[in-house]
């Protein structure tokens, strides 16, 4: 594919921006592609709607915004409601099945779900839910090669939490998605 447009949505505090940063770094620094990451956030630091987007390309990224997404990652009901309409036909949706409960029709998209936040809570750290989701999206939507993603996570999280984050990634990566 010439270009892959990934939209990640949730609320402030979930690590939405960090997720897209890790993805962007994986594909640029460790996979040698180009990527442009932009973000939209409100004046609130936590709790407000938050989304970020990564355009991945072999070529230079001319147009950095995502009007139509190839992949949508939703970690909140609001993000799911808002961005499902911009997911292209046969685009891949990855959502947190505990946080997105009021579902719309998924007829025109390929929907995959994972209880990412619950898995993170079981690991004792709710905060790694975003990394569980990244692992899941890496497996289900091939947003990056898994190795580049692993390297990028190692380089992007505090050293004392490396193991925790790597485990979170593997949990998500190996999870058999519910459709």
């Amino acid at each position: 594919m010439a270009q892959l447009r990934v939209k990640i949505s949730g609320f402030g505090g979930q690590g939405i921006v960090l997720s897209s940063y890790i993805l962007g770094k994986a594909v640029t620094i460790f996979d040698g592609k180009n990527a442009s990451m932009t973000q939209v956030y409100g004046p609130e630091a936590r709790g407000g709607a938050c989304s970020s987007q990564v355009v991945i390309s072999e070529e230079e990224v001319d147009y950095p915004l995502v009007d139509t997404a190839d992949v949508l990652i939703a970690l909140s009901q609001e993000g799911y409601d808002k961005f499902l309409p911009i997911l292209r036909d046969q685009g891949i949706l990855c959502y947190d099945s505990d946080l997105v409960t009021k579902l719309h029709s998924h007829d025109r998209v390929i929907a995959k779900s994972i209880p990412a936040t619950r898995i993170a809570e079981e690991m004792g750290k709710k905060i790694v839910a975003n990394i569980v989701m990244l692992g899941f999206a890496t497996a289900q939507a091939e947003i990056s090669t898994p190795d580049a993603m692993r390297q990028s996570i190692r380089k992007s999280v505090p050293a004392k939490f490396t193991d925790l984050n790597m485990e979170a990634f593997e949990r998500g990566f190996n999870y058999q998605g519910e459709t």
């Binding site: 620094i29 442009s36 990451m37 932009t38 973000q39 990224v61």
Partner: peptide, 9 residues
Amino acid sequence: AVVGHMTEK
């Protein structure tokens, strides 16, 4: 604000 917060290589 876009270029300022945009992350690229």
